[in-house]
């Protein structure tokens, strides 16, 4: 077990130690104390380490993560797990805007609320939010799944490509070219698996599914107002 106190060493020093983890290294269990809202904690990992961060983190925590499993006991600032490639970033509190933005893979879990632009431009990541999300979420989402147990704000899934959105609560409004779609048994199974992976219990029968109407894929003069 490696215990790092951010009152003692800098974020840069911590991140360097995490980047230096060699393949097969035994140093896989890390606890990080006193984050105090600092930015860029545990960014750019590429090792199968388990990190436990005790407290609130600032911007971009877990950004570009590969392989690692990062648990934050607290809230997260902007850009949580931005551009995540694989592994897991799990936040027990709330996350600010752009959580999971442009993520290619892996799993992002926010037990509380996420803010605006959650999953913006997501490219394959799975995002599960226990609470609600803000406006412009899943804007231009290309692939992956966004599960929201609470409500979604205005403009959900604007200009969405092929990502799947599941919402348990209310949707403020749908963005351009985002429509409600049929919930089949296969979708319900996917949703149940995502919730189970995230460790969040919910009644899957109340969820609705949203996705692309595919009307904006090719230029159509009748859609000029939507571009």
């Amino acid at each position: 077990m490696s215990a790092v106190d951010l009152a003692e060493i800098s974020v840069r020093e911590l991140n360097q130690r995490l980047h230096d983890l060699a393949p097969g290294a035994n140093e896989t269990e890390w606890t990080i104390s006193n984050p105090r809202g600092r930015h860029a904690i545990a960014v750019g990992l590429d090792a199968p380490a388990n990190l436990h961060i005790d407290g609130h983190v600032g911007y971009y925590c877990g950004g570009m993560n590969k392989q690692a499993s990062i648990q934050i006991d607290g809230n997260a600032g902007q850009g949580l797990a931005e551009n995540i490639m694989s592994g897991t970033v799990h936040c027990t509190g709330n996350a600010s805007q752009s959580a999971g933005a442009s993520g290619h893979g892996g799993l992002v879990v926010v037990e509380g609320d996420a803010s605006s632009r959650c999953g913006i431009s997501m490219k394959g990541v799975d995002i599960v939010v226990g609470g609600s999300i803000g406006h412009f979420s899943a804007f231009m989402a290309q692939a992956g799944h966004l599960v929201v147990c609470g409500d979604a704000g205005d403009g959900l899934g604007d200009s969405i490509y092929e990502a799947f959105i599941y919402v348990g609560g209310n949707v403020g409004s749908l963005g351009a070219d985002c429509i409600e779609k049929e919930m089949t048994d296969a979708h319900r199974q996917t949703l149940a698996e995502l919730l189970a992976k995230a460790g969040i219990e919910d009644d899957i029968t109340r969820f609705r599914r949203f996705g692309s109407a595919r009307e904006l894929y090719n230029f159509n003069i009748d859609n000029a107002g939507n571009y």
């Binding site: 105090r36 809202g37 600092r38 609130h56 911007y59 607290g74 509190g93």
Partner: peptide, 20 residues
């Protein structure tokens, strides 16, 4: 940003939210 609030006594257990 939260790191300013982290300077205050009792910040870690404060109720924290983002204004809508």
């Amino acid at each position: 940003e939260y790191r300013s609030i982290a300077q205050l006594p009792g910040a870690k257990t404060a109720t924290i939210w983002e204004p809508q």
